[in-house]
């Protein structure tokens, strides 16, 4: 097992060592703000430039950002509550068939 940040973990690949910051807490905490800023940046373009689209609805300000956000949330919620909620089963539901992947060559 590694230490918390892996800096003293000798088993870490040398190529990966300069990128350990990817696992840092500050980056994980900042992700939401980085993506929000980037999204708003591209939405802001709509206020200065009129996009021409085949579907007129898509010309609305920030249409794709709104649709992308909504679609993602919908997919996760339906997956979580409908699929896992109604159709989720224990791993051994199919006579344990889904658990034995170790024999693969």
């Amino acid at each position: 097992m590694s230490d918390q940040h892996g800096k003293h973990d000798e088993l870490i690949h040398p190529v990966a060592r300069p990128f350990l910051w990817l696992d840092s807490a500050w980056l994980k905490a900042s992700m939401i703000w980085i993506f929000l800023a980037a999204t708003l940046g591209f939405v802001a373009v709509d206020f200065f430039h009129h996009r021409h689209e085949y579907v007129h609805l898509a010309e609305f300000y920030g249409f794709y950002a709104i649709w992308g956000f909504g679609a993602f949330v919908l997919a996760v919620m339906v997956g979580w509550f409908v699929i896992r909620g109604l159709l989720g089963r224990q791993e051994d539901y199919w006579d344990g068939d889904e658990t034995d992947e170790e024999g693969q060559s």
Partner: peptide, 16 residues
């Protein structure tokens, strides 16, 4: 611009 809006909007949703 449209595609980046879609992708970043979805990535923001994930982080959120």
């Amino acid at each position: 611009v449209g595609q980046m809006q879609l992708l970043l909007g979805a990535m923001f949703a994930f982080a959120f």
